[in-house]
Deep mutational scan, measured.
Amino acid sequence: DELVREILGRCTCPDQFPMIKVSEGKYRVGDSSLLIFVRVLRSHVMVRVGGGWDTLEHYLDKHDPCRC
Rank of each mutant, 00 (worst) to 15 (best):
D1P: 06
D1S: 09
D1H: 04
D1T: 04
D1E: 11
E2Y: 12
E2R: 13
E2M: 09
E2F: 14
L3N: 04
L3P: 04
L3Q: 12
L3K: 12
V4I: 14
V4E: 06
V4A: 02
R5V: 05
R5L: 10
R5K: 14
R5M: 12
R5F: 09
E6L: 06
E6F: 04
E6V: 04
I7K: 07
I7Y: 08
L8K: 00
L8Y: 00
L8M: 09
L8V: 11
L8H: 06
G9R: 09
G9P: 02
G9T: 07
G9D: 14
R10Y: 05
R10M: 07
C11G: 03
C11P: 00
C11H: 00
C11N: 00
C11I: 00
T12H: 05
T12Y: 02
T12S: 10
T12E: 07
T12V: 09
T12R: 11
T12L: 04
T12K: 10
T12G: 04
T12N: 07
C13W: 01
C13P: 00
C13N: 00
C13G: 04
C13V: 08
P14V: 09
P14Y: 08
P14R: 10
P14K: 13
D15P: 00
D15R: 13
D15G: 07
Q16T: 11
Q16I: 07
Q16A: 09
Q16C: 01
Q16R: 12
F17K: 02
F17R: 01
F17W: 03
P18Y: 04
P18S: 12
P18T: 13
P18W: 02
M19C: 04
I20C: 07
I20N: 11
K21R: 13
K21I: 00
K21F: 04
V22M: 09
V22D: 08
V22T: 04
S23M: 06
S23D: 13
S23E: 14
S23H: 08
E24H: 10
E24L: 04
E24N: 11
G25C: 09
G25I: 00
G25W: 05
K26E: 07
K26N: 08
K26S: 11
K26C: 15
Y27P: 01
Y27I: 08
Y27L: 02
Y27A: 03
R28A: 09
R28K: 12
V29Q: 06
V29N: 03
V29R: 08
V29E: 00
V29G: 02
G30L: 05
G30T: 05
D31G: 12
D31Y: 10
D31S: 12
D31T: 14
D31F: 08
S32L: 07
S32T: 12
S33Y: 07
S33C: 11
S33F: 05
L34A: 15
L34M: 15
L34K: 10
L34Q: 15
L34T: 14
L35W: 04
L35S: 10
L35Q: 10
L35E: 14
L35K: 09
I36D: 02
I36A: 09
I36Y: 06
F37Y: 12
F37M: 14
F37D: 15
F37E: 15
V38F: 02
R39M: 10
R39N: 04
R39D: 14
R39T: 12
R39H: 12
R39C: 09
V40C: 11
V40T: 11
V40N: 13
V40A: 09
V40S: 08
L41F: 10
L41T: 13
L41V: 15
R42P: 07
R42W: 08
R42I: 01
S43H: 08
S43L: 04
S43A: 10
H44R: 15
H44I: 13
V45C: 09
V45P: 10
M46W: 11
M46T: 08
M46E: 06
M46H: 08
V47F: 01
V47G: 02
V47I: 08
V47Y: 07
V47K: 04
R48S: 13
V49S: 12
V49L: 08
V49A: 13
V49N: 13
V49W: 11
V49Y: 12
V49R: 09
G50E: 13
G50T: 09
G50I: 03
G50Q: 12
G50Y: 06
G51V: 07
G51M: 10
G51W: 06
G51C: 10
G52K: 15
G52N: 12
G52S: 14
G52F: 12
G52Y: 14
G52H: 14
W53R: 15
D54H: 14
D54G: 15
T55A: 05
T55F: 09
T55Y: 12
T55W: 02
L56Y: 03
E57D: 09
E57P: 01
E57Y: 02
E57G: 05
E57S: 07
E57K: 05
E57A: 05
H58I: 03
H58S: 14
H58Q: 08
Y59P: 00
Y59T: 02
Y59E: 00
Y59L: 03
Y59I: 00
Y59N: 00
Y59D: 00
L60A: 00
L60N: 01
D61E: 14
D61I: 08
D61N: 11
K62H: 08
K62D: 09
K62S: 09
K62V: 14
H63R: 10
H63I: 13
H63P: 06
H63K: 11
H63C: 07
D64I: 03
D64M: 01
D64F: 07
D64Q: 01
D64V: 01
P65L: 03
P65E: 04
C66W: 00
C66E: 04
C66D: 06
R67N: 00
R67V: 00
C68W: 12
